[in-house]
Design a protein around this nucleic acid. Structure first.
Lengths: 337, 337
DNA sequence: CTGTTAGCGCCTTCAC
DNA sequence: GTGAAGGCGCTAACAG
């Protein structure tokens, strides 16, 4: 910058003003400076700007700490896409934040926000007792949660109505005359699981369908967990007729196990799932799934964050529509094959 | 930091030394300072450190400029996972870099490297004439390419032997007695497509299988393109017996179209694809695909970059193994269904 | 409209 | 071992 200033015969402040497109600058000097910048192939040091402005033009995305798995679930990719779309419109970049070795969730946040690395954060999903969220609130750092938080009701977040979605999905199976409806879930400390469980129970109850403790089992949001839990379910019960699965990726594991056990889907056992990733669409049979609009979740979360920057407040909790996408796994008649 | 220094009764230099774990510092003061830092809930400003050190502890990942699509292909997610694994081991974070509005590929790079936002870059895939790579070379900025570059042979990169893989895949179909083997590709300006095309041609030639100009068609790496191109192929030829597809995601489109046209896979038409994402595994029929070890690609690319930081040089071009995963789409006998 | 000055928060000489 | 001073590259406040 100094060089530019020297060559252009102006001060560094002037150059700085040109860079930030300050209004009160003569068109002539502006052009001159711009030209020199071009010639010198100069581009301002973002880091230095950040330090001076206390602003980074970067938003951070925190992946869940069970990141090994999550990085492979298309859901996160979609969310990221939504975020990226909006961020780039605002000329922001995205910092993917993951736990460094042995770092706790709160450590990560401390590192990022005290280190002033980003202007705001987007969290994907949350646990029931989320220390991280508490930490962010205490530090008054701008963030948006994709998902919900049970402890605080007033945090900016974007979510589906997971309970209702789960209720609908369960009701669908009930309508199809299924009597032994089980539920295979992922990490139970996640809020999303809690809510889906509630919706499931509610639907059973309202329709007077039996619920047994061991109809609901859970492990992790992994394909393998789906497989293993299905094995367990089949040991415990020999006459199930429906399984709801908390995630498409898990569903694939479930499906695999069912096929091995020679259970026909949907004839013997119907299957319904969440997230409607491409996996559900192309599975065989294709899997009925809840479209939660992941891209939209990411998008709105990001927009909300920018609104917060501008202190243009929005409702704190935003609900994104979901939709049941019915497919072969719950359709007896139009079974194409 | 000033506060810490004051409270601890030392100078800021001392605090700074404690932070960077300087050797020549007495254990006593070190402990004292550490304690105060804890009490004050102090954490150093990363940005300021970056400015002073000219080092960001961040690596940038450049997504291909056709990013809209790419963000949805599991391949990139896997690569990202590999990168993330290594980066976090080194206490680095990842900056996802995308084109801001109307920014050219080179603009992005200029912004990032002149802006000193990252210590190094990883590029995913490249075009035949890649201005970006030229720019990075000219500026002597550390980067690793996942993929290959035709113009320069001496750039650090990690790739599969795509030509050989394509050759093998084609040969497999030839061995299965297929005579009219077509190829559906993605963006032709990408190096990976060029190489796969070469391998395909080579195999045909060596086995004296006819090649017709319109056996090879291409558009974009999208599901929809797969679908559309298959339609085209079917209009042009009514007796194909095999299709090679450049990517699993595209394959799904191909498969969809084939089913609609009542073509049996693999009996009438065999299908083979690249990238072996989870999509291929769970498609119906499951699709034979080349496992390119995407996670490993990301991982090694990242390791290579860190090696470059340490000036510990490695071979410039690293080749990652691939493997053909045979599945139903090319297996007549063991057709499970 | 433009230049001067004083930081942003940290690190690195160079003394002691 | 530790402190003082100057600098990383840019911006903001105050002059003029």
């Amino acid at each position: 910058m100094k060089d530019v200033a020297k060559l252009a015969g102006v001060s560094t402040s002037t150059v700085s003003r040109v860079i930030s497109n300050d209004s009160r600058i003569s068109n002539r000097t502006k052009k001159k400076v711009l030209k020199i910048m071009e010639e010198l192939n100069y581009y301002p040091n973002t880091i230095a700007r950040s330090l001076a402005n206390n602003k980074t033009d970067t938003i951070g995305v925190i992946m869940p700490s069970y990141k090994e798995d999550i990085f492979i679930n298309p859901f996160f990719q979609k969310v990221l896409k939504g975020i990226s779309l909006i961020a780039s419109q605002h000329f922001f970049d995205i910092l993917i934040v993951t736990n460094h070795k042995e770092e706790s969730d709160v450590d990560v946040l401390r590192r990022i926000i005290k280190g002033k690395r980003v202007d705001g954060l987007i969290l994907t999903r949350s646990k029931e007792e989320d220390e991280g969220i508490k930490f962010l609130k205490e530090n008054k750092f701008p963030f948006v949660l994709i998902g919900s938080c049970l402890e605080y009701d007033d945090i900016p977040s974007v979510d589906n109505d997971n309970e209702q979605a789960s209720y609908d999905l369960t009701s669908l199976l009930i309508k199809k005359d299924r009597k032994k409806i089980t539920f295979i879930g992922g990490e139970l400390d996640s809020v999303v699981m809690k809510e889906r469980y509630k919706g499931y129970l509610k639907a059973l109850k309202e329709h007077n369908i039996t619920f047994k403790e061991d109809y609901f089992i859970f492990d992790r949001f992994l394909e393998k967990s789906g497989y293993d839990l299905t094995s367990r379910l089949m040991e415990l019960h020999d006459n199930l007729d429906a399984i709801i699965v908390a995630d498409d990726l898990m569903s694939l594991g479930v499906l695999k196990r069912l096929k091995e056990g020679e259970n026909r889907v949907p004839e013997d056992i119907m299957l319904a799932s969440f997230n409607n990733t491409i996996l559900a669409k192309y599975a065989n049979p294709s899997i009925t799934s809840i479209e939660i609009n992941s891209i939209e979740l990411g998008r709105r979360a990001c927009e909300k964050l920018f609104d917060m920057f501008k202190e243009k407040s929005r409702e704190n909790k935003e609900i994104i529509d979901y939709k049941i996408i019915e497919r072969e796994s719950t359709s007896l008649k139009e079974n194409i094959n």
